Amino acid sequence: MKANNLQLATFKPSNPPSMQLTDTHCHLDYHKFNPDRAEVIQRANDTGLIRLLVPGLHHRSSKDAVQLAESNPSVYAAVGFHPTDLDEFTEKTFEKVKDLAHHPKVVAIGEIGIDYYWVKESEKRAIQREVLKRQLQFAQEVGKPVVIHMREESDAWTGDASVDLLAILSEWKSGLSGALAERPGVLHSFNGDLETAQKALALNFYLGITGPVTYKTADKKREIIGQIPLDRILIETDSPFLSPVPHRGERNEPAYVRHIADKIAEIHLKSPAEIASITTANAARLFAWGD
């Protein structure tokens, strides 16, 4: 996507809503937002979103994410190579992403990780693991947390992707110190079982919760989320994907994050305002938002 399609502008929220929310994962650079990106961000601000994080998928989308962040006070960026976009990964493009990572509005390295759903070949899976290790090492060098993608083959609750990812993260975490050791990153759109969640929490990772928590058939997911400490939960839309009820089947957008907050409030027997406050504070601790 060309950067000149990003509709760069400065956005000003109207009268502040009663709740302050954060969407810690939304792909606002995606082409589905080309017709009305400005309005999407404005709706998010008007709904109460004070921070939005746009992760990169490769060097071009990372650049677009940074450009969006430069022009919008509520938008921040993460930069990196998604495991299904590694055809884009070369020494030259990795250097471009490394350069972007030093931008003051880049708060994380991501979206990086392991995907065994789309990638079946063992050789390509091995490449995913090696590129992930290189990006984790770079995150350590620049002292920024990571946004981790993990998807199992056949969308299983657990499997080789979980095992491989946790082994890599555990080894990486053992070499960290200071703030990054305390807050190394987030497992984006967490879809694992309780054991995987507990192992990730033991490594000090946050877990990102997305729209499927609102789906009628998601009882097992809600049961797992009910056992995750609130101080380790982030809320995400993954826009334009994974729209929550009542917008399922539509293009997702950051303003819909409030439906995820409402469902987590129901699960944990809290008010939506409490969940908004807690998850916004969690995101501020993890990403520092330019501090």
Rank of each mutant, 00 (worst) to 15 (best):
D46G: 00
V245R: 06
G175R: 00
E121I: 02
L234I: 05
K32M: 13
E95P: 01
V54P: 00
E141R: 13
K216A: 14
F89K: 10
V213F: 08
F33M: 06
V131E: 02
K63T: 12
E39V: 11
D164W: 06
S122G: 00
S277V: 04
T90Y: 02
Y206H: 13
V146F: 10
Q140V: 01
S277Q: 15
K173W: 15
F33P: 11
L21E: 03
V245H: 13
V131K: 09
V54T: 13
Q7D: 14
K221W: 12
L53M: 11
Q140K: 15
E153P: 00
T90F: 03
Q128F: 04
A101F: 14
L8R: 07
F241R: 00
D219P: 00
H58S: 08
A161H: 01
P229W: 12
E123R: 02
P16L: 12
R37E: 14
E250F: 03
S18E: 15
E121A: 15
I148S: 11
K220C: 01
P35N: 06
P145N: 06
V147A: 09
L286G: 05
S154N: 15
G178V: 13
A3N: 08
R125G: 09
H103I: 10
L100S: 09
V142S: 07
A283C: 10
D291H: 00
R129K: 14
A288G: 11
G192F: 09
L203H: 03
R258M: 10
A69S: 09
H259C: 04
D99Q: 12
K120G: 03
G113R: 04
A77C: 05
Y116I: 04
L57F: 09
P16N: 05
F94V: 01
Y117E: 14
V66C: 09
D23S: 11
R222A: 11
F241N: 04
F81C: 02
L132N: 05
S14T: 11
L176H: 06
A161T: 12
T196K: 10
S189V: 06
Q128L: 07
G175W: 03
F81M: 05
S177P: 00
T47S: 10
A78P: 03
N282I: 04
S189L: 03
K199T: 08
P184F: 10
K133M: 12
V40N: 07
A200N: 10
G159S: 06
Q7F: 00
I112R: 01
Y206G: 02
L49P: 01
L234S: 05
V186N: 04
G159I: 05
K199E: 15
R125L: 06
E130C: 01
S71T: 10
Q7T: 11
A167S: 11
T10F: 12
I275C: 04
S177H: 09
V66E: 11
L230Q: 03
G211K: 01
P13V: 00
I148G: 11
D155L: 14
P13C: 08
Q67V: 08
Y116L: 02
H31K: 13
L203E: 09
D291C: 00
G113K: 02
D115K: 00
V245C: 04
P254V: 07
K144T: 07
D85K: 13
P13W: 04
G80Q: 14
